[in-house]
Design a protein around this nucleic acid. Structure first.
Lengths: 337, 337
DNA sequence: CATTGGCACTCGGTACACTCGAGTGCTAAC
DNA sequence: GTTAGCACTCGAGTGTACCGAGTGCCAATG
């Protein structure tokens, strides 16, 4: 790839991102001072088109980037992202004044990221398997109904209601909770040891039931939780989607957490990664680009934050924002942990 | 209001709901057998227009209902809703096999209602003030960081992290929790008594901090939680909105729970209520209709379920679905409570 | 006197012709 | 290799004509 051709490609992408209009050779020749005429630009553009980086929506129109063109742009011209000062400050302030429970924090982080980038944002919570049991409590809600609560090291609380024929009373529940704590505390919640019988039949039955209930919680709940912020931004970007339907399908997709989590999971170990249009396997994302970055808690990969927007998005800003947020979130959670 | 005029109004509303096209006099005269010619229908239509029930989008077009027209239709022709058998069965099955924690249940209920009506659905959770404290636990997560957990009678768990200079140890936390339980158990969570000092200085400080933290939880969190399901349906109904922007604003509105909860709260004591277009004070809802019904737990008003769609929605189906879901949800929660 | 058939009128939607201009590809000259 | 020039393409915008659904009004009707 010629240096001048690269500059032209860059110009096409940047102008198109800014104006949403196909970019012609004149505009490129004038807006950048390449020192060449529009005719030369035209020649290079035909080559770029043959190589698959740009395309014409119609004959006699300007060029727009293809997914491959965006890819080249992202790989070569956005190595480090950018973040407007006002936004950088907003992010810093948010994480300085953050004093919330984990769920609330992640939820609000997704909203922050959405506000800063003007696109939909996603935050995947820390994997539960890092969290260890710190306390267990059994509360008798009604005769025959017991609520089992486990407090985890990351401040999360897991709970499950049990319906039991045996109608255990308050004191027995307390004793069972104590026994469970003795056996479970310090173990990761999603890999609890089996309940070791104590000899007391009724207590053992309750203990085992609770152990089983926790197992069910682990099995039923995806180990990571997804928080999506700023879905309304999809409607605002509507013009960038080919169909109105495609936007509707996208919204639908976001309602089903599972898909998105699986999408986010297979991810490079570090740094910001970008996935553009057809690079996504999921067909609802054909018009979209995703910018993702993992965050680390005390050096360990813990979760992911990301931005979802049209392929025609400001990658520099998005990458900058995602990098900043993932970094700060990791720091904060490391401090809290 | 003439009987025939009412029939014509009804025809206009029903046809318009079905086809989304302005309805002409011929179509009314033919589709219904009123026994009159299109000319007569025309005469009545001009009167209906003067009375404000219908309007012409342009001269020489058919008529479409105004908000007032929908209002008359809802008040007079949809007294009891309707629910397709398949849907009725789906609702029944859902509530029979429901065995989940409260939050999950309400969330899934909103999705159910959205699926059945093909519109966005809202569920407002039971007011927290009914819930009483059943257990309190303090867990030391790290030196200087304590997580206070309160288990409530409705199976909900409230929690708050405390950062304390005093670095209380495990045993002291346990003692404080016991003291708190002694004082708080049985009291409604959002109206806890002040912490009565026990004489032990350090314990009292921790106890008071926890009491204060719980107070903050009550203050910060709206006492009811809102669950919104099927926001993607808004995009599907996009043609019914005047602007694309208006749909975007609507999505944005739904992201801010507070507004919607306040909207849902001031509500008649019982039965399904419908609020149409300009009847809503909130300007984002100018194009929307809302169908709401409260549900009761053991006879007590507890929360609300509702459907949000374009004014051009199938009110009969929506009313039927909302009525069925609110009824069943109330029953289930009464059983669980 | 309510109802109806008839009729002139309105106006959105579609089809068609035309122009304008941005943008292209190609070629010949520098 | 670069550039100026030129013919060509085609989308977008504009003006005209026409069709047809729908209306309002009026005179005729039972």
């Amino acid at each position: 790839m010629d240096e001048r051709k690269a500059a032209i490609l860059r110009a096409v992408v940047e102008e198109y991102i800014e104006t949403a209009q196909p970019v012609g050779s004149q505009r490129v020749a004038r807006s950048r001072n390449l020192g060449v005429s529009s005719a030369t630009v035209r020649n290079d553009m035909t080559v770029l088109e043959h190589e698959g980086y740009i395309e014409q929506p119609h004959t006699s129109a300007g060029r727009i980037p293809t997914d491959l063109g965006y890819r080249y742009f992202v790989d070569n011209f956005t190595r480090e992202g950018v973040l407007r000062i006002a936004h950088r400050r907003a992010v810093a302030e948010f994480f300085e004044s953050a004093h919330r429970a984990l769920e609330d924090l992640l939820h609000e982080t997704s909203q922050l990221l959405s506000r800063v980038t003007d696109h939909t944002a996603m935050v995947v919570g820390p994997q539960a398997d890092v969290a260890r049991v710190r306390g267990i409590q059994l509360v008798v809600l009604h005769p025959g109904v017991v609520l089992a609560v486990a407090v985890l090291s990351n401040g999360a609380v897991e709970k499950h209601t049990l319906e039991l024929a045996g109608q255990p009373d308050e004191t027995r529940a307390r004793a069972t909770a104590a026994a469970l704590e003795g056996q479970m505390i310090g173990h990761p919640f999603n890999d609890l040891p089996e309940f070791r019988p104590t000899g007391d039949d009724e207590l053992d039955r309750l203990g085992q039931a609770v152990r089983k209930a926790f197992g069910e919680v682990v099995a039923s709940r995806p180990s990571e939780l997804l928080y999506v912020g700023g879905t309304s931004k999809i409607a605002a970007d509507l013009e960038s989607f080919t169909t109105v339907d495609s936007a509707a399908h996208l919204l639908e997709l976001l309602e089903h957490q599972v898909v998105v989590v699986s999408l986010v999971r297979n991810l490079l170990d570090q740094g910001v990664s970008v996935s553009i249009g057809s690079e996504n396997e999921i067909k609802e994302l054909r018009d979209c680009a995703i910018v993702l970055a993992p965050y680390r808690i005390e050096g360990e990969l813990a979760g992911t934050v990301g931005v979802l927007g049209p392929t025609r998005m400001d990658y520099r800003q998005a990458i900058g924002a995602v990098a900043a947020v993932s970094d700060q979130l990791g720091r904060l959670l490391s401090r809290m942990d």
